[in-house]
Design a protein around this nucleic acid. Structure first.
Lengths: 343, 343
DNA sequence: CTGAAAGCGCTAACAA
DNA sequence: TTGTTAGCGCTTTCAG
């Protein structure tokens, strides 16, 4: 392990100059060359802990994320990991399981830790929490969350919900149900609620009515979605299509259809949201959002902020699009009112 | 942010004493009490970066893990995250996507970074790699991997494979196929190969023959397993039961059965391995290994090593057990030789 | 543009 | 046991 002093000596300059060069300050070309040569020769790599101490920050990209086990969250982490290069700080994960833990993490991140970069995923911070962070000179980038005045990488969930529903409507469906998350979570950035809104808008625009009980909100996960779908599919006026607010939930719906003997897509079309890996391998029709690309962009923003280039404070909206696979199809003609009795 | 100096002054002692107390060295009770009081009053929290620099280590628990997107890997990460307390260092993830990257990580981990703790998951290190690490005083704990002379937390995969197969045999099955991973991966700790061995042993012990083509090895994931299962299920001498080396693969098999109109479990029983969340929600029969518990134990080992208590260099073997759910059942009586033609 | 020197907050060696 | 002090390796003034 050679130090910055070794490099300075080898290059015949002072340590300050080496440090400046390392940090992107302007140095006379000849000097720069000498330093570069010395670095190569000594295989010098700046010690992160030392740099951290001197700058008062932990050499880390911190990722604050709820529900890490959810496939979409996981793919986001994966995207961040993939995008982080060797010259980026290591990626540390902070799973948040509840409001109290979120607060604790915020406190730690703005005092003891003080990561070089912070990515807040799918989470809305209170004004106080954001202020605490900013006061410690920790400037988060928001991923899948929109925070006024901070760089935010999002998709238009309302539009996505509308798209999903319109896809179903275009296929001739009229009895379309929605399955999503509770909308009163203290924690979550409410993408499910926004997708739900898109659903309602599309239904209204098409002049379709949403029968009572066609909207089921519950805990996230395949299990609860399965239960809701089972109930929906055993109704006399069973829906001919179901829009689930996430692929995980859609997969639960798919299983419910199978177990109740309802043919997918012939008797019931199903569309999800996110386009996670398991959706692809299950052949699920879904609304795709570019999970990996958004994650990569978050890391890139951190990198440019580190290079003192303040990134735009505006939200970057990524495109969503329907990916049709094998769980949706055109309605059979007899799409009139009367019921098809449960399985 | 108060420093250790503030605490020392407030407690009327030297910084060395405070540091020692903080690090568990013995201090006169009265002194200790004074220090504690000062710490509480000043809300002092030791700066991790500084501690890291002074000790020449990065304040982090590094997790070296391949294929993070696999559900079982993810549940391991989740377990580590859950087990890490506030007084533990943050958890940094190092995803390894290939041998070259593994090598790069090892190098970084033993020079620049030098985490306080290292957990190596599902990976076999070469003698050189391990030596590199140890030379830098980085002592990894192995999770789901057995490394001679280092604490290793494992399950008996051979036994698990035997259990899975015996479960099928007990149910009256005789034509039992196996689907697993390639066994020549340069990277992976070969749990699939060991489960395969258990399968072969159980078959042999029961005097059953494994028909040609009943063992399919391929890339990990639901997709390849799906393809293999499809082939298997369309054979004239179709298996009446399939053992997949992981739940992910078993889920692919399940889908293949559905798509080829084979009833599960009536016409074909399916058993997986790991017992990840999606297995539970899919009602998959599987061999459970205590993923969360093993992860928690890894963190605990790190913690005790940090407290200078060298943990046992012996492997700790965790129990596996068959969890029967709804994808396996007793064979129908007519289990004799002749084929049942493809669907 | 560059060199020297003073810390960043903590640990550890040393002397007391 | 305890206080003092010298670094850990880097960044960042401050002169020059």
């Amino acid at each position: 392990m050679s130090t910055i002093h070794d490099v300075a000596r080898a290059a015949g300059v002072g340590v300050g100059t080496v440090s400046r060069h390392l940090n992107g300050a302007v140095v006379r070309p000849a000097t720069a060359a000498a330093i570069e040569a010395a670095i190569r020769e000594l295989r010098f790599v700046a010690n992160r802990a030392a740099r951290g101490l001197a700058r008062g920050r932990l050499p880390a990209i911190a990722v604050l994320i709820p529900y890490v086990t959810q496939p979409s969250a996981f793919e986001r982490v994966r995207g961040i990991l993939d995008a982080a290069r060797d010259d980026d700080p290591p990626v540390s994960l902070y799973d948040v399981a509840g409001p109290a833990q979120l607060d604790a993490h915020i406190r730690a991140l703005s005092s003891d830790l003080r990561p070089e970069g912070l990515i807040v995923v799918s989470l809305a911070l209170s004004a106080t929490q954001l202020a605490t962070l900013e006061a410690s000179d920790v400037h988060p980038v928001f991923l899948d969350a929109h925070q006024e005045g901070r760089p935010s990488l999002i998709v238009d969930d309302v539009d996505g919900g509308r798209l999903a529903t319109a896809h179903l409507i275009d296929l001739g469906h009229t009895r379309i149900a929605f399955i999503g998350d509770w909308e009163d979570s203290a924690l979550r950035f409410r993408s499910s609620a926004r997708r739900h809104r898109g659903y309602l808008e599309a239904m209204a625009e098409a002049g379709l009515v949403v029968p009572a009980g066609y909207e089921s909100l519950g805990d996230h996960g395949a299990g609860p979605a399965f239960d809701h779908a089972l109930a929906l599919l055993s109704r006399a006026d069973r829906p001919t299509a179901i829009f689930a607010a996430s692929d995980t939930q859609a997969l639960g719906v798919l299983r419910a259809a199978r177990e109740s003997g309802v043919q997918v897509p012939d008797e019931c079309s199903i569309i999800g949201f996110d386009d996670v890996e398991s959706a692809r391998s299950a052949g699920l029709t879904t609304v795709r959002q570019p999970l990996a690309e958004m994650s990569a962009r978050a890391v890139e923003l951190l990198r440019s902020e580190r290079a003192a280039a303040p990134s735009s404070r505006l939200a970057e909206v990524f495109p969503v699009q329907v990916v049709q696979r094998s769980t949706t199809c055109r309605m059979a003609r007899s799409s009139s009112g009367s019921a098809v009795g449960p399985a």
